[in-house]
């Protein structure tokens, strides 16, 4: 029997592990290798430069800018979609009229491509007839023309808001799933004991939603690290690299300037950051599991 099992394990795992090994794991490891070279993307030859690329990272002003922007994006990703998603989930959980329709509306952006989302929001931010300026003009009564995406001060935040619009629905469904797991009699007890709605939320609902919060926050952070498509469409990292992120910077160095060795070094840094976050995530998940089982 054991022999039979071993035979079938090999047969069934050969294809998936082969594909995953060759096209995911192997490239992952060779990223480390290329990060020590000066490969330019088309020349078959390259030479070893040791840790030069990493030394360059340390003195690369644009890298620093991109790292700061990525950090800003991550914090915003934790705050914006998470709180908004939680608020929507709480509102929808009260079995309000038309809850299903509302859910679909808030969820719809998730199935749109980042390219489309970027396109939509470019129009909202458009200087002459964009929705945002139109509203500001209506409210203030003065013709308002501000190119949100073309100004270094607002470019990054404008993209983050657009991105959050898309991500909120995901946070909402995860919180909704978490809310259904809270036993109804517990909430009844709160009411009998005379807890105010705020106390009920703060002391009972929110702690019981901790597992969902861990998932939502982790997903937001990880997705913000991946944030590339929408940025590419909306600003391309500009103006003057003011909205660059690490993922964007890596792409520019590798595929615009053809500094693939340097790009690989940036991707190694990106990998280490992702690794740290994932490690933290799994640890938190286990902790939450232990407490709430």
């Amino acid at each position: 029997m054991e022999q039979h099992n071993r035979f079938w394990r090999v047969v069934l795992l050969a294809a998936p592990l082969g594909v995953f090994g060759i096209f995911v794991l192997w490239p992952l490891f060779s990223s480390f290798y290329y990060s020590l070279t000066d490969w330019n993307g088309f020349d078959p030859n390259y030479s070893f430069v040791g840790f030069d690329n990493f030394a360059k990272i340390a003195s690369d002003r644009l890298f620093l800018q991109a790292a700061i922007n990525t950090a800003i994006w991550m914090v915003a990703a934790i705050v914006l979609p998470t709180t908004l998603g939680l608020a929507l989930a709480l509102l929808l959980d009260s079995r309000v009229l038309g809850a299903r329709v509302f859910k679909s509306i808030f969820y719809l952006p998730i199935c749109l491509s980042a390219v489309i989302v970027g396109q939509i929001w470019i129009w909202i931010y458009q200087a002459d007839w964009g929705l945002l300026n139109t509203i500001i003009t209506e409210v203030t009564g003065e013709k308002y023309k501000y190119a949100w995406l073309a100004k270094p001060d607002t470019a990054l935040w404008s993209v983050i808001v657009a991105w959050s619009w898309q991500q909120t629905g995901l946070a909402m469904v995860i919180y909704l799933a978490g809310l259904t797991a809270i036993p109804g009699d517990l909430l009844e007890v709160c009411e009998i004991e005379g807890a105010t709605p705020w106390q009920r939320f703060r002391r009972v609902v929110l702690p019981l939603l901790a597992p969902s919060t861990v998932v939502v926050v982790a997903l937001s952070v990880i997705n913000s690290l991946k944030g590339f498509d929408i940025l590419y469409i909306m600003t391309g990292g500009g103006p003057f690299n003011s909205s660059d992120t690490l993922a964007m910077h890596m792409y520019n160095e590798s595929f615009k300037k053809y500094l693939m060795g340097y790009g690989a070094a940036i991707s190694v840094v990106l990998f280490l950051i992702a690794m740290a976050i994932i490690g933290l995530y799994f640890r938190q998940l286990r902790k939450v599991d232990r407490i709430y089982g």
Binding site: L28, M260, S267
Partner: peptide
């Protein structure tokens, strides 16, 4: 290990895949 693959930014394997 396989599931962790879901979480990494794809940029991490961009250069080696392009070369491959």
């Amino acid at each position: 290990i396989i599931v962790a693959g879901m979480f990494f930014p794809p940029q991490v394997i961009l250069v080696p895949l392009f070369r491959m």
